[in-house]
C-alpha cells in the first residue's frame, strides 16, 4: 500500500458517498446518469467476485463490500425510490456500444483465460468508459449541479492517483499490470476536459458546457 493508492481509494470512496448522500438528501437524482451507475455496479460486481474466493486484507474486503453496497443502493435510489426524478430523456447514451466492445476485448486481451480473470479484465475495461453516459448527459443538459461536479472530480482523481500508484509500484516493487495501466490512462484522459473546466472554476457561475 502506498500514499497514492490510499488517497486514490479514499477519493473513490468520497465520490461514491457524495453521490449517494446527494441523491438521498435531495431526494432527487436529477442530472445523474442512471446508466453510468448501473455500469459501476457491474464493474464492482465483476471485479470483486474474488470476495468469495480469496482474502487479501480487512481493508480490501471492507472497501469492496462498501463499494458494492453503495453502488447498488445508488442504483436502487435512482430506478426505484426516486425514479420520478430520473431524467431518462437526457440519459440516452447507448451503453451497448460500450458493453459489447469491452466484452469482446476482455475475451481477446487478458492475462489468463479463466472466468474470474476475464470478468476482472471486463471490469477494468468497463470502468474506463463507465462515466461516458454521465458526461454525455451533462453535455446534453448543458449544466451540472455543483455537488455533481465534486462527485466527478473525486471520481476522476481516484484513477489519476492510481496512475501514480502504478509508477510507485513499478519503481519500488517491479510490479505493473499493463491492462490496468492502459485502461487507467484511458479513464483519466476522459476526465481531462472536465478537470480543466472544474479547475478553472470560472464555469461555476454559468452552466457547465463540454
Amino acid at each position: 500500500m502506498n500514499v497514492f493508492r490510499l488517497t486514490g481509494d479514499l477519493s473513490h470512496l468520497a465520490a461514491i458517498i457524495i453521490l449517494l448522500l446527494k441523491i438521498w438528501k435531495s431526494r432527487s437524482c436529477a442530472g445523474i446518469s442512471g446508466k453510468s451507475q448501473i455500469l459501476f455496479a457491474i464493474v464492482f460486481t465483476t471485479r470483486y467476485l474474488d470476495l468469495l474466493t480469496s482474502f487479501i486484507s480487512l481493508y480490501n474486503t471492507c472497501m469492496k463490500v462498501i463499494y458494492i453496497g453503495c453502488a447498488y443502493a445508488t442504483v436502487y435510489l435512482i430506478y426505484a425510490k426516486f425514479r420520478a426524478t430520473y431524467d431518462g430523456n437526457h440519459d440516452s447514451f447507448r451503453v451497448e456500444f460500450l458493453v459489447v466492445p469491452v466484452g469482446g476485448l476482455s475475451v481477446l486481451i487478458n492475462h489468463d483465460f479463466s472466468p474470474l480473470e476475464i470478468l476482472w479484465t471486463f471490469s477494468i475495461y468497463l470502468e474506463s468508459v463507465a462515466i461516458l453516459p454521465q458526461l454525455f448527459m451533462i453535455s446534453k443538459t448543458g449544466e451540472a449541479e455543483t455537488i455533481t461536479t465534486h462527485y466527478l472530480f473525486c471520481l476522476g482523481l481516484y484513477r489519476a492517483l492510481y496512475l501514480f500508484n502504478w509508477i510507485w509500484r513499478f519503481y519500488f516493487e517491479g510490479f505493473f499490470d499493463m491492462i490496468a495501466i492502459v485502461a487507467g490512462v484511458v479513464q483519466t484522459v476522459l476526465y481531462c476536459d472536465f478537470f480543466y473546466l472544474y479547475v478553472t472554476k470560472g464555469w461555476f457561475s454559468r452552466p457547465y458546457r463540454l
Binding site: D9, H12, D50, I56, N60, Y67, D112, E117, W120
Partner: peptide
C-alpha cells in the same frame, strides 16, 4: 502464462 498474482488492488 505466468501465474497471475491475485489482484490486490481495489
Amino acid at each position: 502464462d505466468i501465474e497471475r498474482a491475485q489482484h490486490d488492488e481495489l
